[in-house]
Nucleic acid binder design. Structure first.
Length: 538
RNA sequence: GCGCCGUUAGCUCAAUUGGCAGAGCAGCUGGCUCUUAACCAGCGGGUUCGGGGUUCGAGUCCCUGACGGCGCACCA
């Protein structure tokens, strides 16, 4: 098996993930605008080449500084949030004033400077906006002139003044004074044109400033993960964190990322799954255990796959795959209810999806048989399966055994049609090396996959806990490795040793967090992940 | 990894057969004490993704590289 991984090992020593020196200097500036933000004082002449709008903002920062002002003061105090102010005075009538003086702060999103009365709209992080008014009569000539001269859209400002309603009925703070809270050196994008796809992903901070949906998505994700944790904690589960840096990769079939420990002079894998460690927890007596954390898989990226993705895995001693099917149902339905108030969710494309009730259940081979119009079982001969594959234009990899081929047929013929939540039960032993043999059906395992919108959302098992059978399965996988299947796992002797101390019978499940968000919202994976991996710009 | 398409001002986009690189918003100057994508007058802003080539002349054609989108392959 070491022959299978040695090429990866060699590649890794050239491209380690960790950076020993901790330095990360780019060899070339990222774009022409960025040369000027380096601290290097020996390039002042380039200042002349700055795009006009950035130069203007830098000049304003310098002007503020030169006059004894502070473009980035510390300890800016606000007395009330915009949201609270709106909640308190939302029904103030047009032209009314409150007599209450407050200090508010926010990012300037809109500016209307006139001769003697200036308007601005500021916004705080959750998207709540409030109007500021600066009148000559209240702030005085100097402060008004400074405001017009120094404030740009995008700056964060703090204003102290009375809470009033404008003649048009807009809740406002009528300033007695204003201060810069943080000067923006780059102009914000136009508010009325949608931001380009790439900018949204690469500069999520801009996306979060400009797009309400981006702010909402980020907050929804937090609500969903908190719901999952709450539900699990309520069921007496214990949350653990197991290694991301592993000496051996295991627990799933996937190609790993490789990195290197300088201290140990040892190549390490970023984990592809936490499973083998969570099972060690079961052995140690943490009988209901879960982890929500990242996995890393060195494989293709598309609308439903990201090289790093968050996953929930949960294991329950004395449970089985039926236990875990119930658990994932309550997790998905609980997350939907706690986040959206209902198990009937509306996706961004307007399509509604009902996640409520009992979900459909079908066995893998029944699903294949139905799609094919021919009865297929675990006993269907390999040659017959190959003929079905050829009939349906599925290319057959000679490395595949009959079980793998059956699964490929399923993915080829059935998966796309599984829109409503559907459990697919009872997979071949061949492709499930960590799963217990089925109690009734020889050759099958007690495993389900949960599909929503044609995407695998989660998977569950009656866990294999016979250490002798487990070792045999691993040896089989290692044999596969020597046949060129580089996803097969190396033998994890420490895991097998743990199993030999006795793991209680248990059910286990895994669910993609990003995919759960996708199932709940209809978003692509790059929208559910705040900062998805992107290639460097230059 | 393979194929197709794209990359132009701060942002979103135009530019005819290869013939002076434009608009809206944003910005700058001036005006306006109730504006909401204000309005009025005036002004500036470009390495057309990088490199090479063809041509009197290239945003446009050819080669090459980077990045992105879509499809395929791989995967969850």
């Amino acid at each position: 098996m070491s022959t299978a991984i040695s090429p990866v090992r060699n590649a890794a020593s050239r491209h380690t993930v960790g950076r020993p020196t901790g330095r990360c200097r780019r060899e070339r500036p990222r774009d022409r605008n960025e040369r000027y933000v380096t601290e290097n004082p020996s390039t002042p002449a380039l200042e002349d080449d700055l795009p006009e709008q950035m130069k203007v903002r830098r000049d304003k920062r310098a002007a503020l500084l030169g006059e004894g002002g502070k473009p980035y003061p510390l300890g800016v105090k606000r007395s009330v949030t915009l949201a609270r102010l709106r909640a308190t005075y939302g029904d103030l009538g047009a032209g009314e004033s409150t007599g209450e003086t407050v200090t508010v702060a926010g990012r300037v999103m809109f500016v209307r400077n006139t001769g003697k009365l200036c308007f601005a709209t500021v916004r705080e992080g959750d998207g709540t906006e409030l109007q500021l008014m600066l009148s000559l009569a209240k702030v005085g000539e100097q402060a008004l002139a400074d405001w017009k001269r120094l404030v740009d859209i995008g700056d964060t400002v703090a204003v102290t003044g009375e809470v009033v309603s404008s003649r048009r009925g807009e809740l406002s703070v009528m300033a007695d004074s204003w201060t810069m809270a943080a000067k923006a050196l780059r102009p914000l994008p136009v508010a009325h044109k949608p931001l380009g796809e790439e900018t949204r992903v690469r500069q999520r901070y801009v996306d979060l400033i400009m797009r309400p949906e981006a702010r909402r998505n980020a907050r929804q994700r937090s609500t969903v993960t908190r719901a999952l944790r709450d539900i699990l904690h309520d069921a007496d589960y214990i949350e653990v964190e197991t290694p991301m840096l592993q000496v051996l990769h295991g627990g799933a079939t996937a190609r790993p990322f490789v990195t290197h420990s300088n201290a140990f002079d040892l190549d390490l894998y970023l984990r592809i799954a936490p499973e083998l460690y969570l099972k060690r927890c079961l052995v140690g007596g943490i009988e209901k255990v879960f982890e929500i954390n990242r996995n890393f898989r060195n494989e293709g990226a598309d609308s439903s796959h990201s090289p790093e993705f968050a996953m929930l895995e949960a294991y329950e001693a004395f449970g089985d795959y039926q236990t875990m099917a119930s658990l994932i149902t309550s997790l998905v339905q609980g997350a939907a209810t706690r986040t959206f108030g209902s198990t009937l969710v509306r996706h961004v494309d307007g399509v509604e999806l009902d996640l409520g009730g009992q979900w459909r259940r079908v066995t893998l081979f029944d699903a294949i048989s139905e799609a094919l119009g021919e009865t297929v079982t675990i006993d269907t001969p390999y040659e017959t399966l190959v003929s079905y594959a050829e009939k349906t234009d599925l290319g057959v990899d000679p490395v595949w055994g009959p079980g793998k081929l059956a699964e490929e047929l399923f993915e080829h013929l059935v998966v796309d049609s599984l829109i409503e939540p559907t459990f697919v039960f009872d997979y071949p032993e061949e492709t499930s090396p960590l799963t217990a043999a089925h109690r009734e059906a020889p050759g099958l395992t007690e495993k389900w996959d949960l599909y929503v919108r044609g995407v695998e959302l989660g998977t569950g098992y009656s866990e294999l806990n016979d250490p002798v059978v487990q070792r045999e399965r691993f040896v089989q996988q290692a044999a596969l490795a020597s046949r060129g299947d580089d996803e097969a796992m190396p033998l994890d002797e420490d895991f097998l040793r743990a199993m030999e101390y006795g793991m209680p019978p248990a059910g286990g499940m895994g669910m993609g967090i990003d995919r759960l968000l996708m199932a709940l919202t209809g978003l692509g994976i790059r929208e559910t992940i705040l900062f998805p991996l992107v290639k460097p710009e230059v």
